[in-house]
Design a protein around this nucleic acid. Structure first.
Lengths: 132, 132
DNA sequence: CTACGACTTCAAGCCAAGTTGAGGTCAAGG
DNA sequence: CCTTGACCTCAACTTGGCTTGAAGTCGTAG
């Protein structure tokens, strides 16, 4: 297992070194060694960084994401937990679709103001239902 | 146009009064009058709050959301801007779908570690492509 | 008329997720 | 051998999105 210098990890992943240090500090990733003072990471760190980026766009907090890795960086979570997260994600996806539809509608609707448009009203009600 | 007391806006929308005051402070919503000191909002504020909630789950910042309203609270944005936002949203939706699939896969895949699973590798590569 | 409870202002505090800056260390190239 | 540049540590700062607390002001019910 060859080690990768922090600079290279940063270059390959696009994540700044300061952020890599921060992630290590909070336990999200681990460096495996030092060359002098320079952190050396394992190849799986690159995979982790992909998952972290993905998780962040999905709206997970860093600590939630940390919970998805086992020690060593391999994804590791009880199956039901994963399915629950996937369910939550799909809910979020439905909301986003609603919003995207609402935006497209607003762009094309000829009504003088959208508050007078039935279709828009309905989209909003559907959206509103998810928050109570 | 009847006015709605801040307490009632809060109760109907589920948004705390402190947050409503904060939103007014940053110009996201406007109160139309006072009864004594109490803010009174117009009915469109409730619509705005729905859109704000929706926008937040979509990952927009409050200032981005503020940019979607014209003065008076009616949604107001150039059509091309709206379509651009919708496009961005749909990209995000695709990412989320990828993540959801990855999660479900991890939950069900029998491989000893997911890093050895072809399907998982592929999902990650697809995901990684979107960040450079 | 008085007390109550929900509002008011304003400043300060809090959390997440980093970034920035000062001062230090190190390995590699010339 | 010495400089250079990228890293190091640690603390402080920043931004976004609020919440909390102290001290004050109303309008309504009793």
């Amino acid at each position: 297992m060859k080690l990768i210098d922090i600079g290279e990890v940063s270059a390959r992943s696009g994540v700044p070194p300061s952020t890599l240090r921060y992630y290590e500090e909070i336990g999200l990733i681990q460096s495996l060694a030092r060359t002098g003072l320079r952190r050396q990471f394992g190849p799986q760190t690159l995979v982790q960084l992909s998952l972290i980026a993905l998780g962040k766009t999905a709206g997970f907090s860093l600590s939630e994401i940390a919970g998805m890795f086992g020690r060593g960086g391999a994804p590791d979570l009880p199956r039901e937990g994963l399915h629950a997260r996937a369910d939550a994600l799909e809910g979020q996806i439905r909301q986003l679709s609603t919003l995207a539809k609402a935006l497209r509608h607003v762009a094309d609707c000829p009504a003088p103001t959208h508050l007078e448009c039935q279709k828009f009203q309905r989209l909003l009600r559907v959206a509103g239902r998810r928050q109570g």
